[in-house]
Amino acid sequence: MIDFLLSFSQATGIYAFMNSPWGWPVVESVHFFGLCLLIGTVGLFDLRMLGFASEISLSELHRLVPIGVGGYLLNVVTGTMFLSTAPDQYLYNPAVQSKLFFMLIAGINMMFFYATTAVNIKSETYTSQAIVRAKFMAGISLVCWCAVIVCGRLITYYRPPYHWCLWC
């Protein structure tokens, strides 16, 4: 896996760029920018579903979500650049694994939201059941994205992980 990721990174020029003097911090800046877009749109939508700023129409606020998706895609691209450039630093790092776990939970939560509750939000037909469900999902989403930021910080703080990771 490490060899595959490294050869991908070297073949595509990502490795050379990331190891240039400003490559890594530039990509880190873009990565955090994507996260800010996500928090500024999906995070605000979650807060609204939890009951904050209740005068704002949920269906209107939902229109911001594509911007958050754009931010998420930026994170996927830049995250892949980190991973493929230094796979040994990431693949076995429990902070990365935890981050991916929270992203997975957020993704599953989002799928449930669009399968069960989004139709109520878009048509503005709020049953008491839908409101409870929306609040529950918004809480999970907000906690997951905050946990993603915390785990993201942990990655560099404990790098390299070999001396403290119990299962690496």
Binding site: F32, L35, C36, I39, G40, L44
Partner: peptide, 12 residues
């Protein structure tokens, strides 16, 4: 980092 994400996100 968390606070920066909220401040920058809301401003964006």
């Amino acid at each position: 980092s968390l606070a920066m994400a909220f401040v920058v996100g809301i401003n964006f």
